[in-house]
Simulated assay, not measured.
Amino acid sequence: MEFSAVVRRRRMVRNYDPDRPVPPELVERLLEHAVRAPSAGFSQGWAFLVLTEPADRELFWTATGPARPEVLGGGPSTTENDKRGPFLTRWLAGMRRAPLIVVPLADRSAYLERYAEPDKGWTERDESRWPVPYWYVDTGFAALLMLLTAVDEGLGACFFGIPGERVGAFREAFGVPGSFTPIGAVSVGYPAPDHRPSSLRRGRRPLAQVVHRGRWG
């Protein structure tokens, strides 16, 4: 597929065909492309937890799922929950059908150690030297390459967050070391019909609103 078509077709897929697993060779291609992402100082401070077995995926959803029943519409009735409950129930049902979940994790220490080497010289390993946390940025690049590869291979994918209050349960469930931080997760599979997100009604902002040429404004 032409690269421009891949970019245009990329969208967050939230429902999958549960009867079509992702072939192993495509799983490997997703990962091979992910590690081609750029990284500051070629630090490559990332890791990827790959979940293909049903029991592992079920453990993921159990560990990262909402701790509060009202999040899925089963708790106290409020205006917000009445609006969000059905959406989240449908979202979770569709996402749980994904036959593949990949969790990209960022390792800050890999960057601090890399930039303490002689060619960089930040021997004090001071995180404040970094204008932004590149360990998260670079791992995000890797996740985007997986999203684009999925489109190119005729798959669907969605990047979504792991709730902050559930990260500890996720670490414990999968034995993830404390030095690695999940930046989110990527569900992958063959797309099934799903609902058009209401957010898309906002439309894509035109270039004239977001691009500033030469100077701001």
Results as ranks from 00 to 15, higher is better:
residue 1 M to D: 05
residue 2 E to L: 13
residue 3 F to I: 11
residue 3 F to W: 12
residue 5 A to S: 12
residue 5 A to W: 03
residue 6 V to W: 11
residue 6 V to P: 02
residue 7 V to S: 04
residue 8 R to S: 13
residue 10 R to M: 02
residue 11 R to S: 10
residue 12 M to K: 01
residue 12 M to S: 15
residue 13 V to S: 04
residue 15 N to L: 13
residue 16 Y to K: 02
residue 18 P to Q: 11
residue 19 D to W: 04
residue 19 D to H: 15
residue 22 V to T: 07
residue 25 E to D: 14
residue 27 V to R: 15
residue 29 R to M: 10
residue 33 H to D: 14
residue 33 H to I: 08
residue 33 H to E: 09
residue 34 A to R: 03
residue 34 A to T: 09
residue 35 V to M: 08
residue 36 R to G: 01
residue 38 P to Y: 03
residue 38 P to R: 00
residue 39 S to N: 07
residue 40 A to W: 09
residue 41 G to S: 01
residue 43 S to I: 01
residue 45 G to L: 07
residue 46 W to C: 01
residue 46 W to V: 00
residue 49 L to S: 04
residue 50 V to L: 09
residue 54 P to G: 10
residue 57 R to A: 05
residue 59 L to M: 14
residue 64 T to D: 07
residue 64 T to N: 03
residue 71 V to C: 08
residue 71 V to S: 07
residue 72 L to F: 08
residue 73 G to M: 11
residue 75 G to W: 06
residue 76 P to G: 12
residue 76 P to R: 15
residue 81 N to G: 14
residue 82 D to L: 13
residue 83 K to I: 14
residue 85 G to T: 05
residue 86 P to K: 06
residue 87 F to H: 11
residue 89 T to W: 09
residue 92 L to F: 13
residue 92 L to P: 01
residue 94 G to R: 03
residue 97 R to E: 14
residue 98 A to C: 10
residue 99 P to R: 05
residue 99 P to E: 11
residue 103 V to N: 05
residue 107 D to K: 04
residue 107 D to P: 08
residue 112 L to D: 08
residue 113 E to R: 15
residue 118 P to F: 08
residue 118 P to H: 02
residue 122 W to D: 14
residue 123 T to H: 14
residue 123 T to E: 12
residue 124 E to L: 14
residue 124 E to I: 00
residue 125 R to N: 10
residue 127 E to C: 01
residue 132 V to E: 11
residue 133 P to R: 00
residue 138 D to R: 10
residue 141 F to S: 10
residue 142 A to S: 07
residue 143 A to M: 04
residue 145 L to C: 06
residue 145 L to Y: 13
residue 147 L to V: 02
residue 147 L to G: 02
residue 147 L to Y: 03
residue 148 L to E: 13
residue 149 T to D: 09
residue 150 A to Q: 09
residue 150 A to K: 00
residue 152 D to L: 00
residue 152 D to E: 15
residue 152 D to W: 09
residue 153 E to H: 10
residue 153 E to L: 13
residue 154 G to Q: 01
residue 155 L to V: 06
residue 156 G to Y: 01
residue 156 G to W: 06
residue 156 G to I: 03
residue 157 A to W: 03
residue 158 C to T: 11
residue 162 I to H: 07
residue 163 P to D: 12
residue 164 G to N: 05
residue 164 G to T: 01
residue 166 R to M: 00
residue 169 A to G: 10
residue 169 A to K: 04
residue 172 E to A: 12
residue 176 V to R: 01
residue 177 P to C: 04
residue 178 G to T: 11
residue 180 F to N: 02
residue 181 T to F: 13
residue 181 T to I: 06
residue 181 T to V: 11
residue 182 P to S: 09
residue 184 G to C: 07
residue 187 S to K: 00
residue 188 V to W: 14
residue 190 Y to N: 03
residue 192 A to Y: 08
residue 196 R to W: 08
residue 198 S to F: 15
residue 200 L to K: 10
residue 202 R to W: 12
residue 207 L to Q: 06
residue 208 A to K: 09
residue 212 H to C: 01
residue 212 H to T: 05
residue 212 H to E: 12
residue 213 R to V: 15
residue 213 R to H: 14
residue 214 G to W: 02
residue 216 W to R: 12
residue 217 G to S: 14
